[in-house]
Design a protein around this nucleic acid. Structure first.
Lengths: 167, 167
DNA sequence: GAATTGGCGTTATATTATAACAGTACACTT
DNA sequence: AAGTGTACTGTTATAATATAACGCCAATTC
């Protein structure tokens, strides 16, 4: 599971992998995390997490609502936003501000900056490996005396797959 | 003027400087840019640019509306959004997605990533110098075959000024 | 088993952004 | 200077995203 997590979800741009595996890994990881922190992964929360993970594309809150309704849950905005907030606080999903959308986090157990590449063609988003990035950010900010508490990096462009397809 | 621009607006965290000077520099730069590109810096556009530049804190579209009204302009959302879009396209302002707000760009004449530090205490935002950052981003993305077209970096934290004040 | 807490249902509303169309000013041609 | 096209603005309406507030129920604690 951890090997997969460390792939930093670059597989997101490769739609051919067995994604059900990823979803299950994420759910397992969520359950562990909740148990450790004395939090509850309730049915709504679990469903929201599953829906978000199932998609390689960031999903908007209002895209989730009909799917909640289908599953028999209340489908008013507060329900889904609460679940999203909860999952974010646990680091299980990230919000992509430039898209008003949410995507699964591929390594919730490690502290890390929120850093994504988003393909304008296929709309997939993949998390960046940020070891070096983080130090570059710290250096740049530190030079100006700024103390970083939270990072958000969103790169728009073309993924390898779509670049090749465009040729 | 250019010296000031190259300071990358780190002065934003220092509210004591003569900010009217910055605003005027920005307006001048805007006029030049518009002339070069055959675009018009109309009164609404100029006012919006001025209002945004006057503030060290990112301003939301709806915060601008009453000020437009005061100046005798139409103050419906489309008016301000049109001006904001125009100014963004010319690189004169940036949108900070995580805040749904806009801030003046301190070096509109150079191509550069959208990269800001935002202080959670004083809400000021300052543009990052991104030469090294840019190469770190390119390296990280390139390793995964991703071709960057547009960057957005938003760092939240504490600016030097507020950090010292907190001690 | 009473009290407390956390989570959800529900209604209403706030906030941010855009669509669509009509009118006006400007720039260009002749 | 009149005609013509284009870019800009005014205006109304509405879409899209997000939160406030309150009450109920279930689980947990004492």
């Amino acid at each position: 599971m951890h090997t997969q997590a460390n792939a930093f979800n670059s597989d997101a741009f490769n739609t051919s992998h067995n994604h059900e595996h990823c979803v299950n890994a994420a759910l397992l990881s969520a359950k562990t995390l909740c148990r450790d922190r004395g939090q509850r992964l309730t049915p709504v929360r679990e469903l929201v997490l599953r829906l978000i993970w199932q998609s390689h594309q960031p999903l908007g809150a209002y895209e989730l609502l009909p799917q909640l309704a289908e599953a028999g849950f209340n489908s008013a905005p507060p329900t889904v936003y609460r679940a999203l907030d909860f999952l974010q606080e646990l680091g299980l999903i990230h919000r992509i501000a430039s898209m008003n959308a949410f995507i699964g986090c591929s390594h919730p157990d490690e502290a890390h900056p929120n850093a994504f590449m988003i393909c304008r063609e296929c709309k997939s988003a993949a998390e960046l490996d940020t070891a070096e990035l983080k130090s570059a950010l710290s250096a740049a900010a530190g030079a100006l005396g700024f103390q970083i508490e939270q990072e958000s990096v969103e790169l728009m462009g073309l993924c390898q797959h779509c670049r090749e397809a465009a040729k």
